[in-house]
Measured scan of single mutants.
Amino acid sequence: EINATPKGWSCHWDRDHRRYFYVNEQSGESQWEFPDGEEEEEES
């Protein structure tokens, strides 16, 4: 699962919740759901 993350994302293990979470390396935002690989940036 770690190697399957889309480009620009990293996968980390949360010991407290015993599950993986994903970090967007560009924005620093994290989420529980597996990233779909589409950038959802809304910068103007």
Rank of each mutant, 00 (worst) to 15 (best):
E1K: 14
I2E: 08
I2A: 03
I2L: 08
I2R: 12
N3P: 13
N3G: 10
N3V: 10
A4G: 13
A4R: 12
T5L: 15
P6G: 02
K7T: 04
K7F: 06
K7Y: 04
K7R: 10
G8C: 04
G8R: 02
W9D: 01
W9G: 04
W9F: 08
W9C: 02
W9R: 00
W9V: 02
W9N: 00
W9K: 02
W9P: 03
W9Q: 03
W9I: 01
S10M: 05
S10W: 00
S10G: 03
S10K: 08
C11V: 07
C11G: 14
H12R: 08
H12T: 04
H12D: 02
W13I: 00
W13T: 04
W13M: 03
W13H: 03
W13A: 02
W13F: 10
W13C: 03
W13V: 02
D14S: 09
D14E: 01
D14C: 05
D14K: 00
D14F: 01
R15S: 13
R15I: 15
R15A: 11
R15F: 08
D16L: 04
H17M: 07
H17P: 00
H17G: 06
H17E: 15
R18W: 02
R18G: 14
R18E: 15
R19K: 11
R19S: 05
R19V: 03
R19P: 00
Y20Q: 06
Y20P: 09
Y20L: 06
Y20G: 02
Y20T: 06
Y20A: 06
F21P: 06
F21Y: 00
F21T: 10
Y22L: 02
Y22D: 03
Y22N: 10
Y22M: 03
Y22E: 03
V23Q: 08
N24A: 02
N24F: 01
N24K: 07
N24E: 05
N24M: 00
N24V: 00
Q26R: 10
Q26L: 09
Q26A: 13
Q26H: 07
Q26M: 07
Q26F: 12
S27P: 00
S27V: 00
S27D: 03
S27Q: 02
S27F: 00
S27L: 01
S27A: 02
G28C: 02
G28E: 01
G28P: 01
G28I: 00
G28D: 01
E29V: 09
E29C: 02
E29W: 02
E29L: 09
E29D: 05
S30T: 14
S30G: 12
S30M: 14
Q31E: 01
Q31V: 09
Q31I: 03
Q31K: 06
Q31W: 02
W32V: 10
W32M: 07
W32S: 07
W32H: 09
W32P: 07
E33S: 08
E33W: 04
E33P: 02
E33H: 04
F34S: 06
F34M: 11
F34L: 13
P35S: 01
P35Q: 03
P35C: 01
D36C: 10
D36V: 11
G37M: 07
G37V: 12
G37H: 12
G37P: 12
G37L: 09
G37T: 12
G37A: 12
G37S: 10
E38L: 11
E38P: 14
E38H: 08
E38W: 06
E38D: 11
E38G: 11
E39P: 14
E39N: 14
E39S: 11
E39C: 14
E39I: 10
E40C: 14
E40Y: 15
E41F: 10
E41A: 13
E41R: 13
E41K: 11
E41G: 14
E41N: 10
E41C: 13
E41Y: 03
E41P: 13
E42C: 12
E42A: 14
E42L: 10
E42Q: 11
E43W: 08
E43F: 15
E43R: 11
S44Q: 15
S44M: 03
S44R: 13
